[in-house]
Computed example of a mutant assay.
Amino acid sequence: MSRLFRDVEGGLSCPQGSVVCIGAFDGLHLGHRALVRHAVARARELGVPSVALGFEPLPREFFASDAPPPRLTLPRQKIEGLRALGVDVIGLLRFNARLAAMSAQDFVRAVLVVRLQAKEVWVGPGFRFGHGREGDLALLRQLGMQFGFSAHAIAPVAVDGERVSSTRIREALAAGDFATATRLLGRPYSIAGRVVRGNQLGRTLGFPTANLRFDGKQPALSGIFATRVHGVGDRPMPAVASFGTRPTVAGTTPLLEAHLFDFDGDLYGRHIDVEFVARLRDEQHFAGLPSLVAQMRVDAAQARERLAPDPGSARPRADLPLQPQRA
Score class of each variant (00 low, 15 high):
R197K: 14
M102H: 03
S50K: 02
L112R: 00
F286C: 03
A300E: 12
M296K: 09
S50C: 05
P75Q: 14
F5M: 01
F5P: 01
D234T: 09
L4I: 15
C21P: 05
S50T: 03
D310G: 03
D88S: 14
A153E: 15
M237E: 14
A100I: 09
L112D: 07
G244N: 10
F149N: 03
I169M: 10
D88M: 01
Y268D: 05
R183Y: 08
A158G: 00
V48F: 04
R141Y: 03
G148A: 10
D88V: 07
T252Y: 01
G132M: 06
E257M: 01
A104G: 14
R213Y: 00
L4G: 03
E9R: 04
R168P: 04
P324G: 05
F55M: 06
V196S: 02
C21T: 15
A64L: 09
L99G: 05
E134R: 08
K119V: 07
S222Q: 08
A226E: 10
F286M: 04
R141E: 15
S291V: 00
V40I: 11
G86V: 07
F5Y: 14
P15M: 10
S166D: 05
A301M: 05
G312K: 02
A174K: 10
V20P: 02
V87G: 03
G148M: 05
A318V: 13
S50A: 12
Y189D: 07
E171F: 00
L307M: 07
